[in-house]
Design a protein around this nucleic acid. Structure first.
Lengths: 180, 180, 180, 180
DNA sequence: TATGAATGAGAGTTCATTCAT
DNA sequence: AATGAATGAACTCTCATTCAT
């Protein structure tokens, strides 16, 4: 409960504007109680980042394509993965905001994600699904920036569903504006 | 001088971790001196956001294409504009970080920029340069997220030049991965 | 405790020269403790004014004349009321100084008291206890000024008792210098 | 000019809320200029108190009764003196406020004035103009309190003229409420 | 009734954190 | 998902005052 409320507050206000006094007030406990369960403000924050990292790790680890999708084209496969990622972000908004947006570690996490995506892209190229002159790390980085900003402005605001986002995102990145 | 140092500090540490005491130490003056020039910490921050907004506005207002570029294809034109934008971000790193990344207003500013880009895209469509089924606001938003993240990870780190970024960015968004 | 010490300090030094640091030193606590109990320096001050206003209101509300006094003449009745007022001021010196002398609101409070006294005087006139050509609001205002100054110079310095003050005050105002 | 503006500000806001920065702004000079002419904030304040004391001393020294008034009764004589005093307060509102109301020295000055009035009263008694059982120092102190408060609430607000105040004040103190 | 530019000293206030129970 | 009461450390901001010109 405390951890959840902390997540909510950090996600909502960021690290500095979040006050322990506010967290405990929302949780209907006193400040010393907070320190029974967490070492410090920094510690909870780190714990929440850790939670996000683990969830993300699990998500990626279990992201095998269903057989039917695997057989379809590249586009379907990517769209499916993205849709699951946006779904994951939606289901875990608070920790995702913390680990992917507001924390200092978000930078590293996004770099890692970009590397992972780059890897996948390279594999696709190696498998002959497409060829390109564009620096694939740049592509991956671009995608990560897009994922973050779309989550903030369209996903977490409820403007678009994970599927819609994944759909348009994928056709945009695969086919470009000129080929739709 | 103070304003510049303030910009640097805010860009580096964000609003809350930036301390007046640090700004004035870097400027070799005492704290009251700060208050000779600015009403409050908030006030400088706002002033810097304003500076960014005005610079950005000017940049956009003066972004006419040179004659030779205007005659070339869509890709050249977009690449040119983007390259100039990244150049602008590079030349104004501190205020850009403040106005585009760390401030609360960054959100609004990015929304505005997305709207502007969307407008341009719509115009290109109307002029028959391309047609697409993808929601153009989503495309614009994606681009803005990409611009932000590329600036942070590739531009301001010196990994890529404005031109390189603009080049790859443009071909990616126009042609997609499959058509390069 | 803190409130009492604050009252003492404000009464002694006025608002501006009173320092939170001094209040807490006298109370043997640290400054943050002060803010556990009060929102701000202004807030305590206002609270003390409020305390005075309420005490004064209660005092007035419960100022019924005892049966034996009620039957006596006008002079006795007024002297009795005044004596009780001076007694009240003596028992509540600190808040009285704050609410009646040093605060900005003191002005209003004295105007109110003058109005109340004027009312009483009018009633006495209507009951035929005396008649006069003098503007009764002026009389009441004069009395209030006298009460304040006598409290400061004679009551709170211990030079005269409430009874002595009430006695002389009453014969002076009722009979004048020439008729004693 | 500076001194006058300082007087105005001190009279208006009291010592602590008056700022040198405000005084010089109103005088259209800079802060160092202020210190060319005065040693410190305290120093100007003291100077203004001194000005008031001297003016008051002069006023008292030159307060001989005109021949025609001198021949009239006690009441006329006192009323005349008071009227001149209120006139003096009205003509010198700012310094009077400072020296008689807001400064710490006001207390002493009022004590002095009470002593002077007491002296006069004693003389009148000795001259057989009236006899009384009331403590004459108390009477004088009462009068001083009344003078102060009437100045603040009725004279400086323009509600009553010096003459009106003197008139009612005198008949009240000489004859009392019951004998009018 | 000189000034532009600066500062020493200190005020009020906040917040993460802990002691004692 | 214990607490009442307190605090260390730090921060922003203000104001009378002065240096150098």
């Amino acid at each position: 409960m405390l951890l959840e409320i902390a997540a909510q507050q950090f996600a909502l206000h960021g690290f500095h504007k979040t006050k322990i006094s506010e967290i405990v007030k929302e949780a209907n406990v006193t400040q010393p109680t907070f320190y029974l369960y967490f070492k410090s403000k920094d510690a909870v924050f780190q714990e929440l980042i850790q939670v996000f990292k683990e969830k993300l790790y699990n998500h990626v680890a279990h992201s095998k394509l269903p057989a039917d999708v695997a057989k379809e084209g590249l586009l379907s496969r990517i769209a499916y993965g993205l849709s699951r990622l946006f779904e994951f972000f939606k289901q875990n908004e608070n920790v995702a905001r913390i680990g992917f947006v507001v924390s200092e570690e978000a930078k590293d996490i996004k770099v890692q994600m970009a590397l992972k995506i780059e890897e996948n892209l390279i594999e696709e190229v190696e498998n002959g699904y497409f060829t390109t002159d564009i620096n694939l790390n740049l592509v991956a980085t671009t995608m990560v920036g897009a994922i973050e900003h779309l989550s903030i402005t369209k996903l977490w605001t409820g403007v678009h569903s994970p599927e819609e986002l994944a759909q348009d995102f994928t056709s945009l990145f695969l086919c470009g504006l000129k080929n739709n």
